[in-house]
Structure formats: C-alpha cells, structure tokens
Design a protein around this nucleic acid. Structure first.
Lengths: 177, 177
DNA sequence: CGTCTTGCCTATTGATATATAGATAGTCAT
DNA sequence: ATGACTATCTATATATCAATAGGCAAGACG
C-alpha cells in the first residue's frame, strides 16, 4: 500500500496535468482518496506547498529518468526517441506535462513554484543539449530549445485532437539530419 | 468608449492568457471594470458562456487576421514570419495563447468549449498548411503541425524564462529551406 | 510504564465562488 | 407616451474554498 502522502501527490499530479493546478481542490483529492481535507492540510499546510512538492518530486524523477534513458540507449538519437516516447505516455492518459501546465498558469503560481518550474525546464533543456552535442549536430543550442518547445506544443495539440501522430510528425525533423 | 460586454471579454481574455480560465473569477472582472458581478451574469449567464464567447471571438479575429496577413505579405515566408511576430506580441504582455491555455486545461472546460478550441486549432493549422503549400515545400502537412506545435511550445517556454529569442530559435528551421 | 510523534479524524471558520431574484433607470420604437 | 427592451443595481441563495483548532489512537522510544 502506498502511503497517504504519496497518494495525494499522485492524484494532485494527475489532476494538475488534466485540469490545471487551479482546476481541482482539496475536496477533490480527499473524496477520491477517501480521507478528509484536513488530513491533506496535515501533509501540505498550504496548497502552494503541495505545488512545490509536486514540482520538486517530478524534477527528482526526471533526474533519475534522464540517467535511465542514457543507460538504456546507446545513441543520442535513441535517447531523444525515448524522451518522445515518455511524452507519448502522457498522451495515452490524456495528460499534459505537469510543469508545462504550471508554466501556462504562470501568473497564478507563487514565485517559489515558478522558479522550481524554471529549474525543471533548465534541467530538461540541458539534457537535450547534451544529447545533440553528443550526436555531433551543429547548433545544439537551437536544436535543444526547438525540440523542447515542439515536445510541449505537440503534446498540447495531440491531446486536444486525440491524434498521437501529431507528436511524431512535429518532431520528425529532429531525429534525422 | 468600448461597451461593457467588450470590456468583460477583453479582460477575461487577458486573465485567461496569464492565469488560466480557472485562475480568475467574476469578482476579479467586476472589480477591475467597476461593475457588479451580477452585471457580468447579465451578459454571460454562466461562466461557460463567457468561455465560449471568448473562443468564438478569437476565432473570428483570427479569420480576419489571416486574411490581413495574406494581404500585407507577398510571400508565404513573410506571412509565416507575421504569424511569429503576432505570437511575440503575446510574449511582450507576458500572455500565453488563450486557446493554448484552454487546451491545457482541457478536462476542466465543457465539451462545447473544447470543440470550439479544436476548431480554432483546425483553422490555424489549415492556414499554415496553405502557406507551406504555396511555398512549394514538401510535407506541408508535417510542416504545418510542426510549426503550430513549436509556436505554442516556444511561447510557453519564452514566457517562463523571459527570453524572447526562444521563439526565433525554436522556429528558425521552418523559415529557410 | 509514560511521553512524544505520527497520521488521521471531527468540526468549524472566514472568505470567496457562481448564480439567481427582483427593482430601477434609461433607451427606443410604434 | 405607452410598452418593450437594455443594462445595471442591491440583495441573497447556495456552494465551495483553503485553512485552523483540537482531539484521539497507534506506535516509537526512553
């Protein structure tokens, strides 16, 4: 059995990905998990604390995920494809990228959370840059920022239209030189 | 003087672009405009009616905007650049694309609004496809979906980091063959 | 044993949300 | 100028929000 705190984080993450961080309440979490809202306040005193914990946890998971993608794939191209497949996993659950969502809702989150979200994207971009460098591609800088932008944007549109091919089509140019 | 209904739409649009559609209330609108919340209910009985009106209005504005971009620019490349500049206008006001925002918050909007947002992106993609076709580019299909995805994603990240160059860098590959 | 901590509970607060009802003043057409 | 419509108001209903206070049981640890 996963503990209550993890259940709260898991559900809050999923709801942020589908409705946005302002699109759910402690009552939604409590009802679904089968506890009371006050119990959520025990674990996360303020809703902002929950937001910060969500982004921090995802950053840690990504740091592990990046290392795992490098271990599991010989080539940079294979690793980039693994990142694409990871985002397609969101699509399968009709979820957007959680940090992309918070980036969209930027002016409604605290400065503290905003800076954590920035750090998430900084990490992601740095990892992509490294892969394009390893692949010997020129302008790894532009390729990394383009790949990241297209990944976020194509997930947004693919989820809206329900068409998984959108992601592959939008990113095709980045995988073959 | 702009009428009250237009003031409501203008402010609601801007707030949706910065905080998300769930990130503001009728009270925010009323206080800023200097009316009472009940007056907003007179114009838009349900908040969902406001959402629908926002998307419908933006779609109409875009239809006019697309025609204007074609009239003002000889080449398809010039028109695509005009579309990029249009999105950079959002960035200057620290706003995201309103329909991109609603697409992110997808599961919290009504089916009616979701289908209007889909129509917005269908229109946009069709116009981009036409420009890539006119430019004689192969795979206009993939270019249109890639361009649109990258436009949305790069605006999201540029606004987060405050770096306007992100948009230019991410889209560079689409303007030169 | 007894004290402290953890994790959850019941109960409630104060603020805020969307939405409705009913009144009022101004506008406009016939 | 009578009647219908527009636009706004006050007031209130109803619901929900995040957040707090205080208590209780189970286990950890001296």
């Amino acid at each position: 059995m996963t503990d209550t705190k993890t259940k709260i984080l898991d559900l809050a993450e999923s709801l942020t990905q589908t409705r946005g961080f302002n699109g759910f309440s402690y009552i939604d979490l409590a009802n679904e998990i089968g506890i009371k809202t006050a119990s959520i306040h025990y674990h996360f005193k303020l809703k902002d604390d929950l937001a910060a914990a969500l982004v921090e946890r995802l950053r840690e998971q990504h740091a592990l995920g990046f290392a795992a993608m490098e271990a599991a794939n010989e080539t940079p191209e294979g690793r980039l494809q693994a990142a694409i497949d990871y985002f397609k996993g969101y699509l399968a659950k009709e979820e957007f990228c959680m940090c992309g969502m918070m980036a969209a809702e930027l002016q409604s989150v605290s400065p503290r959370v905003a800076s954590l979200v920035k750090a998430y994207f900084r990490d992601f971009e740095a990892w992509l840059y490294k892969q394009f460098e390893l692949a010997g591609r020129e302008n790894a800088d532009e390729l990394a920022i383009g790949f990241l932008s297209t990944l976020e944007g194509s997930l947004l549109i693919a989820r809206l239209t329900g068409d998984a091919d959108v992601i592959s089509k939008a990113l095709k140019g980045y995988l073959k030189e």
